[in-house]
Design a protein around this nucleic acid. Structure first.
Lengths: 82, 82
DNA sequence: CTTTATTTGTCCGTATGTATG
DNA sequence: ACATACATACGGACAAATAAA
């Protein structure tokens, strides 16, 4: 993925994942692995964690320690682009 | 069993077993099986092994390969709640 | 003697949480 | 942002020894 050097990578990654959830690419309960996503986007896991943290705080995903992160759905007030 | 997510499960399990030995629920020579205990507490055997390892190092139990773990008693210096 | 069940020991893989540099 | 390491936890698999059928 191409990153805009003017903005943090984790923000750009979070936006991509938001879009995937909005459009149904990622359906509820779909498991998101920080390790695999970090590999997919070509970034460090530490960077990926910043993205998942933001998505978690916004209600897009839920995270269970030692288990994984899972798609929650589109948060309240967010437009569904599906 | 209900676990406090703020502390490791294996520590909480070890504390439960310590209490059972202190109060005589588990008497000396009573056999403890990692497999059955893991099932009882609803955790992975790997997690259960961390608990038995701690108890073994503290002197609460002894473990014989291929045989099982057995209650040793209340270690020296530990108060007997019985 | 053979089979089956049980138990600990060991190893692999995956995943998140935390910490350090 | 990255690199690395370790802790915690789960799932699965296999080996070796023991005991009972």
């Amino acid at each position: 993925m191409e990153f805009d050097p003017r903005r943090p990578k984790w923000q750009q990654i979070a936006e991509v994942i938001r879009q995937r959830i909005r459009t149904g690419v990622y359906v509820p309960d779909f498991q998101l692995s920080e390790v695999r996503l970090a590999d997919e986007f070509g970034v460090n896991r530490d960077t990926m964690r910043k993205a998942t943290r933001a998505l978690r705080e916004e209600g897009w995903i839920t995270t269970t320690p030692n288990m994984g992160s899972f798609v929650a759905g589109v948060p309240e007030g967010e437009p569904q682009t599906d």
